[in-house]
Computed example of a mutant assay.
Amino acid sequence: MTRDGNEVKRRALTPQILLRAYAAGIFPMADDANDPEIFWVQPEMRGVIPLDAFHVPKSLAKRVRQAPYDIRFNTAFRAVIAACAETTETRERTWINWPIRELYCQLHEMGHAHSVEAWEDDQLVGGLYGVSLGRAFFGESMFSRKTDASKICLVHLVERLKERGFILLDTQFTTDHLKRFGAIDVPHEEYEDMLAEALIGEAKFG
């Protein structure tokens, strides 16, 4: 049962159930950070960034070379997901509620959820997090407190995925922001084939 016409109430979800859902092409969301309920989503059109067609805008590539931030991996997962759940002046609502935050922190402890972090003077100024399964990485959310911080994290994420043998970067949906990096919409049937291939074998995020 999915959000595409049908909805299920939150059950006693476990990290294991969550991984099985990802393997079936389904992911959870909440209507609001303050809503304790979770529903399952299975989009008819899935957002994907083809790793071999990842595009870095020229101005951003220059910023990456300048290395304005210290980029770290998996050193502050809980802080990253908390920041992604915060409302801001430009983001009045988020879909990351407390049950989701706790589930993904458990996935992180199991080695299946990861963060990419931008630090400046030992202050966390941007980041993103997602889930790894097989050779697939499912991007969940990102945040930025300084110019280009989350974008630079995305560049480093893609570099790491390529280096470590991942073949699928799932963004769930496409946005104008992600399309600048090469994100495309993939029909559900085509996505299922891509996911099935990515679940064969194992890539280690680190």
Rank of each mutant, 00 (worst) to 15 (best):
Q42Y: 07
C105G: 10
D70S: 12
E102A: 06
D32C: 15
D148C: 09
D4G: 06
K162E: 13
A12K: 09
F27M: 03
L107C: 05
I49H: 07
F54K: 13
D52W: 08
R164K: 13
W98A: 14
G201R: 01
A33C: 11
V125S: 01
L107W: 01
T94R: 07
K9W: 15
C153V: 06
N97V: 06
D32Y: 14
R145C: 15
F39Y: 15
Q42K: 15
H156W: 05
S115L: 02
R145W: 10
R63Y: 10
L178R: 04
D170F: 00
V64G: 05
F39C: 15
G25Y: 11
E92M: 08
G111M: 00
S132M: 04
R72Q: 12
N6P: 09
L195C: 02
G25S: 10
E7S: 14
V158D: 06
F27L: 10
G111S: 04
R10S: 15
T174R: 07
G139D: 06
G126M: 05
E190K: 11
T94I: 07
S150K: 08
Y191W: 03
T147R: 12
I17E: 14
L103T: 04
G130V: 00
A30T: 11
T174H: 01
Y69D: 08
V186P: 00
K162R: 15
F166R: 00
V8T: 14
E44H: 12
R3P: 07
T14E: 11
I100D: 01
E44M: 14
G47S: 10
E197W: 04
H177T: 03
A83T: 00
N34F: 12
E192C: 09
V125P: 05
I167A: 02
E163V: 04
F138R: 03
D193V: 13
I17R: 07
A83I: 02
G201K: 02
A149H: 06
D70N: 10
